[in-house]
Amino acid sequence: MEDSFILNQVKPNPIRIINPESVWNQQIELECGKFYQVISPSGSGKSTLIGILNGYRKDFEGEISFNGKPLKNAGVDEWVSIRNQKISTVYQDLKLFDELTMQENIGILDSFTPHKTEEFPIGEWSSKLKIEEKMDTKARFLSYGQKQRVAIIRALNRNFRWLMLDEPFSHLDSENMEAARLLITEECRRRNAGLIITGLDKRFVQNDFISLII
């Protein structure tokens, strides 16, 4: 299928024990447009999967392909171009720039690519996540929970076929968590994009989420 990932016998290297139900060492297709939640009973390996799907973890065996194209040996530039056009990710450590304001962090792509932030409803999103008054604050002065919400808005502020979030709600209260979950699923449905999310609280798992066990 278009813009789908296929993992063929992928397993991190080295890996100690493989859970028989795990995604490792199997042939798995991650279909664009579907929602996945990553479940890790052992509590590890979630970020490894996000890293492999984003092309910055190379320490694995097996094959990975995207949109029918094998990517095991893809170079930096090829991965950058895929990230640029197809994948938007909220990393576990958020990867915000402390010296830039919230607004500059959200609009970072405007400076380097033809992307235009004004075409996206940043104001609406930030009021939904109750962070609109922090627009001109440097990221270094934000709390971790506020930073998480900035990172989510930055991830939405671009075109993508996949949205990946690595423990995005860890520092949000339940009210903000629900607002963020709603916003994320809404945006992915509207854009018909795939969603991969890790560390999701069981209360928020909906029926339409496919589980990926690590």
């Binding site: 984003n54 910055y56 930096v76 530039d77 950058v80 171009s81 990230r83 640029n84 056009q85 994948i87 990710t89 990393y91 990867k95 720039f97 970072i108 792509l109 380097f112 690519t113 671009r158």
Partner: peptide, 9 residues
């Protein structure tokens, strides 16, 4: 980070 955000090298 810039590369992970998709900024060309």
């Amino acid at each position: 980070t810039l590369l992970l955000l998709g900024v060309p090298r």
